[in-house]
Design a protein around this nucleic acid. Sequence first.
DNA 1: ATTACTTTTAAAAAAAATTATAAAAGAATT
DNA 2: AATTCTTTTATAATTTTTTTTAAAAGTAAT
Lengths: 408, 408
Amino acid sequence: MRPQFLYEKNLQGVANSVKRKQEQYRKIVRHLYYNGAASIAEIVKAVKMSQPLVASLVDDLMGYGMLLDNGVGESIGGRRPNLFCINSEYQYVIGVDINLHTLNLAVFDLSNKQIFREETKYFDLENSDEYLNSLIEKIESMISQLGIPREKYLAVGISIPGLVDAKQGLSHTHLSVAENGLARVLGDRLGINVLLDNDARTMALGEKAFGKAIDKENVLCLNLSNGIGLGMILNGELHSGKNGFAGEFGHILIDPEGKLCYCGKIGCLETLTSGKILVKNIREAVDNGQPTLLASYKKENRKIDLRAVVEAILQGDQFAIDQLNQMCEYLGKGLVTLIHLLNPEMVIIGGKIAHAGKFVIDPVTMSMNKYAMSRISSETELVCSDLLDDSALMGTMANVMRSVLSLD
Amino acid sequence: MRPQFLYEKNLQGVANSVKRKQEQYRKIVRHLYYNGAASIAEIVKAVKMSQPLVASLVDDLMGYGMLLDNGVGESIGGRRPNLFCINSEYQYVIGVDINLHTLNLAVFDLSNKQIFREETKYFDLENSDEYLNSLIEKIESMISQLGIPREKYLAVGISIPGLVDAKQGLSHTHLSVAENGLARVLGDRLGINVLLDNDARTMALGEKAFGKAIDKENVLCLNLSNGIGLGMILNGELHSGKNGFAGEFGHILIDPEGKLCYCGKIGCLETLTSGKILVKNIREAVDNGQPTLLASYKKENRKIDLRAVVEAILQGDQFAIDQLNQMCEYLGKGLVTLIHLLNPEMVIIGGKIAHAGKFVIDPVTMSMNKYAMSRISSETELVCSDLLDDSALMGTMANVMRSVLSLD
DNA sequence: ATTACTTTTAAAAAAAATTATAAAAGAATT
DNA sequence: AATTCTTTTATAATTTTTTTTAAAAGTAAT
């Protein structure tokens, strides 16, 4: 019985024995995917099945081409073990990272390597059939360019901003033109299964699988770009809430006497800290003659956007640093609320502002020290992502594999 | 092989076959505990084992006295099924609900019935060996009074306020005199396994097992008494955070220009909403001649405490209701933050203030409507606990059984 | 190099669990 | 009341999985 390795998991009408065997296959593949090449003996320990059984299952999987012999490993005092690994070319995953103005596409093999990567700038997200069509066109052209047969694609993982109900495959904020749900519409048109989630949550999955959250159980991932997104790993699992609305960190109340937010409420964190506000404030200051590196950027006719601001900060521009510090004070306040509520072991800052590195970490840390109960906050490490701009894209891969290899 | 039914789960040095059999027993007992009497056929469906196997395991368990024949059930079109249920007298659980001024003790049988219940007032919690000794004495006297042999007690579940690291069995805030950790010290002295957790989290477990959170996956439980506690069920699991510090809802920032909190920070939610503040404000008002039912209580030399205030509210006392409303406005603000972050399906209010029923629910709902993004808040139901003062005690039972019957 | 000890792998024997089959007990229909 | 159809339970047959045993392939020490 060929390994299905996918959404057929809960297929009804299939004999129990088939389901059982598929689950055994999945356990082995799962271990090899998450831990790399291993010997039969190692797999036995990890999957809690007997050695003859594991040996025969591995044999099957080799026969189907899903696993490969990976030579012999080092001895630890006896016969040297035969190692096995996943055939990274057995299947592929398409990753789609949708941003407000940019589209990132990638194709991953089963060793998580990007065998294709493309960034399309000025690909502005809008709720129209045209956008949907050109998105599909982009993916199709990538598929035909690569020449890999369609059935080799395990799934398409998508990251998109806004409110997303991953379970149902719905995107509420963007691309609601897809009437039967974005995941289904894209899946039908591409002929490949589609898995959808919100950008911040996808980033969190990326960090958990490939970034600083590996082996951590309670991690918060902030997506600091134009807005503020939050993806949470709690008890080792992604938290999405009842409808997938969890993580609206940008709209928690920070200043009751603050400004009106576009969400209709007053004093939201996003009215005080966000890439958008930072850029806006700096642009105004430049117009008012504030001396800063960014003023010279403007003279050179370079656009003052978030990327430029971060660049100026990294070059030590005092005014931009001051502006960032001010925002980090508020961000720290907000984070303290999070930490008090959730007691995470790590907070990872991602998004465009994460490029500023210690220029964000340090002032946020200071602010947290000021506002948090130290017994709690001292348990939480604050770091910048090292996946940076790749975290959402890597997250789509992580999301697909998590779904495919889940054990229930 | 006798069913161990307990902490021996991960015992090393035991043959794999024994572990497997114990797990099979556990699956069956688990189903019967959580779903009540069932036929072999029903169990087969639930535990995904074959009918002959389940039949033989049930046979074993009956032989050990853990299960009982529960007669024949109704036919649904064929032979009437034999039903089996847990022998509720096979083992017992001791529940200990430690409050600042009261101690609640109970002994549960395996049908969750309290076969013993005792409330001790004026049992003031303090960090002393005397307290520890008298607590143990109380438990011991209960044990000898009941005459059930010690080995019949599965475990002692404890609920205690403050910071608790359940995994390690440590109580940081209270009873830190127990040097090797409260759970171990008590366990050694009582000769029974001890399971510890924070009061708000224990309440959440109680609500999930026996209250309004049954069958819900994302539920927040507020313990509104003198302080504010929060227990969270996320993705169907209790969330404790890295060190068990999660749930410090009382110390999130609400009013940056507010009062100093005893925790050292400014403008914490607990400086604005808490039973303590409510009572304090009302006492001051009474002293200043405010007309209210509670003034007459004072004349009758009755103490104005939280219980009295709630009673006055239920009798329609306008001043007390006003005071509560004011607090609920802040509480609603705080809850909005929670809901935006976690997108729960339900928020359950427990603790002494929950006795006020709609007098809390209505103003909090109003406040939430005012401050929340309606798309998110409309997905969350706000209710009062119906376990009320029993929720923590019931939670200790839930906690023990959850631990005993967990499947990993 | 020889010997003793390990670990890994394979194969045979034993045990466990499932599927298939049949019998028992009752419901529904004629 | 007799017949047919269900569901439940018990038993037998078969398959699956594990345990046991042995062989293969290496390390480490004498």
